[in-house]
């Protein structure tokens, strides 16, 4: 009888421990998810959303744009997202933000290059496994056990980067923290020695991008493609390929009245003190660029043209 009682007590303790784990996991997971929604501007009444990877993330100051335009905007930018992931991000935004009218899509000459961006970028959507579209995407890409671990244990969907973003969401903090200026001497040496990311656009990526633009058009959402400055050393590393990509973006805007294209290269690419590294702006560059972009965006919204 004594043995039965102590064994029963032990089992109750183990069950309590497991329950406490899942309760804590659920609470922390929900808390972090809400913070991320705030940070990325999901589930808001924003009319404009910025979509892109770290290039756009560090290039645009969300608060400054909101102050200038006097409307709420969402900045849903993730490190390392390819065109396929951006398509999914737009689906998420369309589903979660019913007021959305304009998508500002960050573009660059390397966005159709298959290599270099993470093959595991589906992992970026772990925090959104409770939403239908991201869950379906992750299920398709991830291994069985990997998927179910993240589905069942909410805290496993996060890492310190996402936790930091979640807390920044609660603190309304979107500051660019990449202080410092690119080492142009080293960069020049790298480019001369061929040590730089090359432009190798894939037709598959281009097709996905065009399908995203078409989808946005069909949903009645206007598109503004924005080329945030990249440094001249990088832009001129493969001048022909680079020019070809720019011409492609320009042609999209020329062909389709639903698309505007804003390019910030001339007068920007040689402002070396604006760059943290070849493609990312530092806070000084971000401030200057945001100011210029906000003026142009305001003009587009008022005039309906670029």
């Amino acid at each position: 009888m004594h043995s039965f009682t102590s064994s029963f007590k032990l089992k109750i303790k183990i069950a309590s421990f497991v329950l406490a784990f899942f309760l804590l996991d659920f609470s922390i997971g929900k808390f972090l998810e809400q913070g991320l929604f705030r940070y990325y501007g999901l589930r808001t009444d924003s009319k404009i959303a910025f979509v892109g990877h770290s290039h756009l993330m560090l290039g645009l100051d969300k608060k400054a744009i909101e102050d200038e335009l006097k409307i709420p905007v969402s900045k849903y930018t993730r490190e390392g997202v390819n065109v396929a992931e951006r398509d999914l991000m737009i689906d998420q935004l369309s589903e979660e933000n019913p007021e959305l009218e304009i998508v500002v899509y960050g573009v660059d000459a390397w966005m159709f290059t298959g290599e270099g961006l993470s093959a595991n970028s589906y992992k970026l959507f772990y925090p959104f496994l409770d939403q239908e579209a991201p869950a379906a995407y992750v299920k398709k890409e991830a291994e069985f056990l990997d998927y179910w671990q993240h589905k069942l244990i909410k805290t496993s969907r996060y890492n310190e980067g996402l936790i930091s973003s979640s807390f920044r969401g609660y603190l309304n903090n979107w500051d660019n923290l990449k202080f410092g200026v690119v080492d142009t001497l080293q960069l020049k040496l790298n480019v001369e020695s061929g040590n730089f990311r090359q432009i190798n656009s894939s037709e598959e990526n281009r097709r996905i991008f065009e399908e995203t633009l078409q989808k946005l058009k069909e949903m009645g959402k206007r598109v503004i493609l924005v080329y945030v400055p990249t440094i001249s050393y990088y832009n001129h590393a493969e001048p022909e390929k680079f020019r070809k990509e720019l011409n492609y973006f320009r042609s999209l805007a020329d062909k389709d009245s639903n698309i505007d294209y804003l390019e910030y290269l001339e007068g920007w690419e040689d402002q070396f003190n604006y760059f943290f590294d070849p493609i990312h702006l530092n806070p000084v560059g971000q401030k200057a660029f945001t100011s210029s972009f906000a003026t142009d965006l305001k003009k587009i919204l008022q005039d309906g043209t670029s």
Binding site: K13, F17, A20, F21, L24, D25, I28, I153, T155, S156, Y158, N159, E160, I163
Partner: peptide
């Protein structure tokens, strides 16, 4: 002790 191990498990899940 149990609380500490609970936190360790959450730590593994969050930061592993």
């Amino acid at each position: 002790s149990a609380s500490a191990f609970l936190m360790l498990l959450i730590g593994i899940s969050l930061f592993g």
